[in-house]
């Protein structure tokens, strides 16, 4: 049994691998003391060696982890395990998004990260859902109900928010605005993907991949299938667990 833990900026993910299978996983909101919280989660698995990844990996190493790898490598390992033909990964998390290219053997050959602004991240969707009065888990479904072509022009989250408010005041349907918000995230991540170049299978991971509307619009935009793992949040933790195998 091996354990991987991903200390992200917004959630902590745990993956337990047994005999090459993902046996158990957990996703919890992170608190101010992520290492204590992680240690609490890990109590169920005493004496196991633990590999940490994510934003809080160094903290984990200081307190409990036996080894660390970056999110980039963790996603490469995790995505490749789930989809052996994967050569390109899109990971959209709470605070950042990244694209990773793999060579034929699954090794990282190039990567790019957007971690300076909220646009194209989960944070952006969350803010916009809030200003339209949707719960985050219904936001994608609402957008799917729209067949509109409305778009928002502002990439910056702060300006996009006021644009959303004025669209509402202009009488546009909330679903149509929701779709426009989703489309803006898709445009942003598609541009990142096109910059790095997409080869073979494209895997979409991270918490935002739970939003079916993003994956759907992305498939339409790119004109190719987008593979979403069953639990897209834990791909990084899974990769960490695989690292020690």
């Amino acid at each position: 049994m091996t354990i991987g833990i991903d200390l992200g900026s917004r959630t902590i993910k745990l993956a337990v691998m047994n005999n090459g299978q993902l046996e158990d996983w957990q996703v919890v909101e992170s608190s101010f003391k992520p290492h204590l919280q992680s240690q609490e989660l890990l109590k169920a698995y005493p004496g196991k060696s633990i590999i940490a990844t994510g934003y809080g990996r160094h903290l984990a190493k200081k307190h409990f982890a036996q080894g660390i790898i970056t999110e980039i490598k963790a996603h490469a390992l995790g995505a490749r395990h789930l989809f052996p033909g994967c050569r390109t990964i899109l990971d959209v998390g709470g605070q950042d998004s990244k694209v990773i290219s793999l060579d034929t053997k699954g090794k990282v050959s190039n990567f790019q990260m957007n971690d300076k602004c909220a646009a194209g991240t989960g944070k952006f969707l969350e803010m916009m859902a809030g200003s339209l009065g949707y719960e985050l888990d219904q936001f994608g479904e609402a957008a799917m109900r729209s067949s509109g072509t409305l778009s928002i022009g502002n990439m910056c989250a702060v300006f996009a928010e006021s644009e959303v408010v004025s669209l509402r005041n202009d009488g546009h349907l909330p679903e149509d605005i929701a779709r426009a918000v989703h489309m803006s995230v898709v445009d942003r991540v598609a541009a990142m993907l096109e910059r790095i170049g997409i080869t073979d299978e494209l895997v979409f991971s991270g918490g935002v991949a739970n939003n079916g509307c993003i994956a759907h619009l992305l498939e339409k935009k790119l004109g190719r299938p987008v593979l979403v793992p069953k639990v897209p949040d834990v791909v990084g933790a899974l990769g960490a667990a695989l690292h020690q195998l």
């Binding site: 934003y55 790898i69 970056t70 999110e71 980039i72 490598k73 950042d96 090794k107 990282v108 050959s109 990567f111 990260m113 971690d115 300076k116």
Partner: peptide, 19 residues
């Protein structure tokens, strides 16, 4: 401000080279 982000990129780059 971006030290943490740079650290991740650089560590990932080192991992990429080490294979």
């Amino acid at each position: 401000e971006d030290v943490g982000q740079l650290q991740t990129r650089i560590e990932a780059f080192i991992e990429q080279i080490q294979g």
